[in-house]
């Protein structure tokens, strides 16, 4: 079982976490669709902090001796998922940017040809 102290500390940390996410959302510095993953990860952490019994059951199931370690493992897993989604987002942006640059070059040539023929 995780200690009451750790529970309080985690709740404070999660408070800051959610404040930051909502603050960035409000300032329109985050797209909502990319924020959903952050909110989902926060929710998982919140549920586990409030109901540590779940954690105890899960850690017994997968053979982790200390539920605190299981909690950290879950948080780490959330971070990995978020990082992966970031790579996916960057790759998509890269592909779109490439197409845009190519279209720009094709248009620039058209404009150049038009100006020369005028």
């Amino acid at each position: 079982m995780i200690s009451f102290r750790l529970q309080i500390a985690l709740l404070v940390a999660l408070g800051i976490y959610f404040f930051l996410v909502f603050y960035l959302l409000k300032k329109k510095m985050l797209n909502l669709k990319y924020t959903l993953l952050w909110l989902a990860a926060g929710l998982v952490m919140l549920v586990l902090t409030i109901c540590p019994q779940i954690l105890a059951t899960v850690s017994a199931l997968v053979g982790v001796f200390d539920p605190t370690n299981a909690l950290f493992a879950v948080i780490f897993f959330c971070v990995i998922i978020i990082l992966m989604s970031l790579t996916a987002i960057v790759s998509r942006l890269n592909e779109r940017l490439k197409r845009l640059i190519q279209s720009d070059a094709l248009l620039e040539k058209r404009v150049r040809d038009l100006e020369r023929d005028r």
Binding site: I101, D104, A105, E108, K109
Partner: peptide
Amino acid sequence: NYLDLPVNL
């Protein structure tokens, strides 16, 4: 006859 990419691809 050339195309000029604005960013290196």
